[in-house]
Amino acid sequence: MTTAVVAPPETRTGVGALLRTWRDRRRISQLELALRADSSARHISFIETGRSRPSQDMVLRLAEHLDVPMRERNALLIAAGYAPTFPETPLDDPSMDALRSGMERLLTGYEPFPALVVDGVYNVQAANRGISMLLEGIAPSLLRPPLNAMRITMHPDGLAPRIRNYREWRSHLMHQMERQLALARSAPLRALYDEVTGYPLPPGGRERASVAGHAPFALPMVIEHDGTVLSFISTIATFNTPMDVTVSELAVETFLPADPETVAYLRKPAP
Rank of each mutant, 00 (worst) to 15 (best):
M70I: 08
G81C: 01
V196D: 00
T108S: 14
L219G: 02
T228A: 14
F86G: 01
P114S: 05
P188C: 09
V117Q: 08
S45P: 05
M150L: 14
R129L: 13
F46C: 06
D244G: 01
P114L: 07
P200E: 07
M103N: 13
L181K: 03
T246A: 03
L31D: 15
Y193E: 09
G158D: 03
H155I: 04
A209V: 13
A41Y: 05
D97S: 14
E261K: 15
S171M: 09
A149P: 12
A139L: 04
L76F: 02
R267V: 11
N128D: 06
R267G: 10
I138Y: 08
L143C: 12
P84F: 01
L256N: 11
Y193K: 12
T13Q: 11
T241E: 14
S234F: 10
S95L: 11
A139H: 09
V211F: 07
L159K: 01
P84V: 00
D57S: 15
R26V: 01
S171D: 15
N148V: 05
P69K: 04
S171T: 13
Y166A: 10
A79T: 00
N240F: 13
A212W: 12
D259T: 10
A79E: 00
V117L: 11
V196N: 01
V6C: 03
E48P: 07
G102K: 08
P54V: 01
L173M: 04
P216I: 13
S234P: 05
V121K: 05
R129K: 14
H43G: 06
F239T: 09
A126R: 04
L181P: 02
E32N: 07
E195T: 14
L77E: 02
R190Q: 15
R267S: 14
I78W: 03
L31Y: 14
S55H: 06
N240E: 15
G198F: 08
I131P: 04
R26Q: 04
T108Y: 13
R129D: 14
Q30W: 05
L201I: 14
S231P: 12
L33T: 00
L143V: 07
Q176T: 11
D57V: 10
I163Q: 02
T49P: 09
L76G: 00
Y265L: 06
A34C: 08
L256H: 15
R190M: 13
D38E: 15
E111C: 12
A209P: 11
V211I: 09
H175T: 15
A187R: 14
P271L: 10
T197R: 15
A115R: 03
R27K: 13
P8K: 02
G198H: 12
G109V: 11
R51P: 05
R144V: 11
E104Y: 08
G50V: 06
T3K: 10
L31H: 12
L256T: 15
M177L: 10
R208L: 14
R164V: 07
E261M: 07
S55F: 03
M221W: 01
V196S: 01
L201K: 10
P202M: 03
A7D: 00
M150H: 09
V118S: 02
M96C: 04
